[in-house]
Nucleic acid binder design. Structure first.
Lengths: 236, 236, 236, 236
DNA sequence: CATGAATGAGCTTTCATTCAT
DNA sequence: CATGAATGAAAGCTCATTCAT
């Protein structure tokens, strides 16, 4: 009853490290271009609106290959989800922070997340699609779950360090703070079209972006700081 | 895209106010049930995923009627968008605030918005769909634009009043604060499925909701207050 | 979750007898031509081999109409099955037998069945398809079951009458006799191609057919007769 | 349709009998498992319904191997047909009959065929598929034709012997009798699903099977016997 | 006013088969 | 010898929409 009548290639990490032949390399390229195309198309049109035909066309491949490598449209969507999570995680890991300087580090975190969402609208769009589908796919993916904890762990370290130095209020929840930062960055990116119409201004203008980030930086710091130096922080 | 397939009944604002006959009332009921069904279906499945067939079925009507009353699927989506904006505006208008008590009023605003998003997931879902489609429909709708300014106007009034009383910092942007509140409430609702998977906890549990609102209330107030009465606010 | 998004016309016997309009008559013609085409195509190519595309083409209609009137390929197959059963039943009902003359009547039954199978290869072919699918469809069809009992009831009457007259052996089972007659006629028709290859002769030649029927007539009568008048029956 | 895509191993009768090496033995095993799988799958799903993918999966091999060893799906079907004919012939050959005891031998023939059909539903199912396809494949197969005559030859011997002993009527056709026996056994097996629905009883129950064989034994003997010993045969 | 019938493009998926190492 | 990769046609089915009374 399993769907794949054709033996699928063992996607993912190969065991014993052979030198890949020409054929193998081309195959991997095909698979990857399909995945990249899927991310692009699903991000632009959603899971329902993004057809396998369009994905194949964007990848310069054939619809059939999607089924060869991924098995189904839905499985391709899961793979796309996992990939954007993986990329986000990777980018996050590259963000080196100094716990000894909690204020600057916290600012850096906000800056990173705002920048990431803006430079990766496909991340935001795919997550929206997944939420439209009530998290059906992510729930099934073991891999996606693994990427979770790191970000909050980092924040927690910063909060503890800040509190130890007497800079931050003690007892703050890293999870809550993470949500606040994510919400501010995500919502601005995700809803930029309706917000632009609603507010009558273009939220994608650089000044608008800068102003928003400054405001949130301010708000986040005020949320955590033990003592508010009236001038300094307000005019960040 | 031409919308006049058949002479449509004058959908929308009736001109001279006649007493509606039986026929007219039945027609209006059909139209409304279609609209309600559209909101439900589009919210659940998105614009692409929600078919006119399903909408007609949910409304207990015929697909043909959608074309009769709305002209096209897209026009029906626009009508659905307008309707949820209208409802939101209406709810907002029912929120009576006392500018003389800016702190309590601000808390009430946060509470209202958090509650609205939670009780009206279709509002959140439809806006997400619209943003996936890059604001294509809202941009065309005159009506939706009208609903914009009220909310921010109210906030502005509160901020001014608070500043005048020496409670709030002066010079704060109502727009920025509005976005922060909206972001915190919206993101939590919109992304509850991926977040629940990501965080490994159920964000729809009452305690989780309460905790989140408390945190945001705190954060919002810390953002605006001129002086922080250490205990009171911290332990909101 | 029901499959038909479009309201399907109430297939089958209409309740209150209105005079059908032009439109209605055309619709019925469409439906019937699709059903006829389905019987033809399924009989020739089987359930799997017969595509809805081909059926639509043979009917001079559109594939879409199959879904409009029948809902699915499988449901169309069920309708085809029911129709050939109905036709067989109808033909059987037209066979008027005189229980007072059991020998002649029995001969007539054999003759009828042999002729029916030969003139209606689609009946045989569709039943074969249904058996390949392990009776999955017929089991679900209430209507098909209704057509069952008549044939055997008639045979039973003949056997009783013959026994009462002292012509037939008493205690014979109509069901067994029915199966024997059906088997002989059906198998000859159903397996005519492999048998022709196997035997090296064309079983569809009129003489071959006549010879076979004569043999079976003889065999059936010898099975039921109480006394065998050596010459008479042997050279039927 | 051209079948030489790659130099095929000499499928079928090996010429000069060399001792097979390890490679050769593995190859033969692959070929045989594919053939066995093909018989199983074609029997269950028909020629059109049985996909090469499923056959390869059941065989635990690759689709490509089907083309390697057999050249095409159709050629594989022909091979499957030939194989089941071969098996049937082989089983028939193991049936040793004593022409001096024609009645017992005839009974044994009926018993053998009934048992074979029942224990080898794939034989019945494949022949049905082949007949659906109008004998297209068997006509092309030299080998299948060879298996024909034996069975009827045996019956002919029995009929002659019986007639010589005065037990059987003279002049009976072995071919006709063979068809009658085959029809009775085959039809019961082939149509067991529709018949079970039609008759409202389970034809696969042991008692039903026994009753049917007894009835047919009786009928066959009554067809051939010159004189009927009233009691003995009637209550077979 | 209202609604069954019709329509064709497009969807996801599976098919048998061939290519290239 | 063996097998992953590729291919395009065709499958069943759903879609939004229009026709015609």
């Amino acid at each position: 009853m399993s769907r794949s009548t054709t033996a699928r290639p063992a996607a993912g990490r190969a065991g014993p490290q052979r030198k890949p032949g020409v054929r193998e390399r081309a195959a991997r390229a095909t698979r990857e271009s399909l995945l990249r195309a899927a991310i692009k198309v699903f991000a632009r049109h959603g899971l329902d609106g993004g057809s396998v035909g369009r994905i194949a066309a964007v990848a310069g491949s054939y619809e059939r290959m999607i089924y060869y490598y991924f098995g189904s449209k839905e499985a391709l969507f899961v793979a796309a989800l996992e990939e954007i999570y993986r990329r986000f995680n990777e980018a996050e890991a590259r963000l080196h922070l100094d716990p000894a300087q909690p204020v600057e580090s916290l600012r850096a975190v906000v800056h990173f997340m705002f920048g990431y969402y803006r430079r990766h609208p496909e991340f935001v769009a795919l997550l929206n699609s997944e939420n439209l589908h009530r998290g059906r796919h992510i729930r099934k993916s073991r891999r996606a779950r693994e990427y979770s904890s790191a970000a909050i762990g980092i924040l927690d370290e910063l909060l503890r360090s800040g509190a130890a130095q007497g800079l931050f209020r003690p007892g703050l929840s890293a999870r809550d703070l993470y949500l606040l930062i994510a919400a501010a960055g995500y919502f601005y990116q995700s809803n930029r079209f309706t917000l632009s119409a609603f507010l009558g201004e273009n939220l994608e203008a650089p000044e608008a972006i800068a102003r928003w980030e400054a405001f949130v930086q301010d708000s986040v710091l005020r949320t955590v700081l033990a003592v508010l130096p009236a001038r300094e922080v307000a005019s960040a």
